[in-house]
């Protein structure tokens, strides 16, 4: 089959462009360490409330020492427990430089878990444990939100993660943060 010279050139450039994209992705993964979520553990959704297995027997922030923290959460209709509606705005505080490992699972339906201005973005699927780690270098107030439809109250499901400046830990961190 005959393909005209211009078209061959165009398709050649397409292949080159796609190869560049794939190269850039390989660099993002291997040189910069940006990774997709992957399987860590499974859990019985019914047990999450009745007889929670670790790490969900200890909801909220757990200081592991050395600037490392676990934040164990139940993504449920329609809050990230333990941040019930009156605690969503206050949320949780960590110092700048903290490395936080989020363990999230759902006792009911599919939820989402995204932190604004970061690469933290993972689905929360009943039966699976979603585990992602992020180091918060920039102080500010991060909005953590549910980005999968989870029923009539989906638009109320969020909390705030406050990253305090290193020198002024405990000072007013309620101002708008992030690099928007």
């Amino acid at each position: 089959m005959k393909i005209d010279a211009y078209e061959k050139l165009f398709l050649g450039l397409t292949v080159v462009a796609l190869a560049c994209f794939m190269g850039a992705l390989a660099a993002a993964v291997n040189r910069h360490g940006i990774r997709l979520p992957h399987p860590t553990a499974r859990v019985d959704p019914a047990a999450l409330r009745a007889a929670p297995p670790p790490p969900f027997d200890q909801l909220g922030l757990v200081d592991k020492g050395g600037g490392a923290y676990d934040l164990n959460l139940l993504a449920a209709m329609w809050q990230y427990e333990p941040f019930f509606p009156d605690k969503m705005e206050a949320g949780v505080r960590v110092p700048a430089g903290a490395t936080v490992t989020f363990n999230v699972s759902s006792p009911d339906v599919i939820h989402g878990f995204k932190i604004k201005d970061t690469n933290v973005n993972v689905m929360v699927i009943p039966g699976q444990v979603s585990t992602v780690t992020h180091t918060f270098d920039a102080p500010g107030v991060y909005t953590v939100l549910c980005h999968e439809y989870c029923g009539a109250g989906h638009h109320r499901m969020y909390f705030k993660l406050h990253v305090d400046p290193p020198a002024a830990a405990g000072a007013d961190a309620g101002r708008a943060g992030g690099e928007s």
Binding site: M88, G112, C146, H147, H154, H155
Partner: peptide, 14 residues
């Protein structure tokens, strides 16, 4: 800017 999809903006609490 991380605005979620599939969400009622008029009712959202944040």
């Amino acid at each position: 800017e991380s605005l979620p999809r599939r969400l009622s903006v008029s009712q959202m609490s944040y």
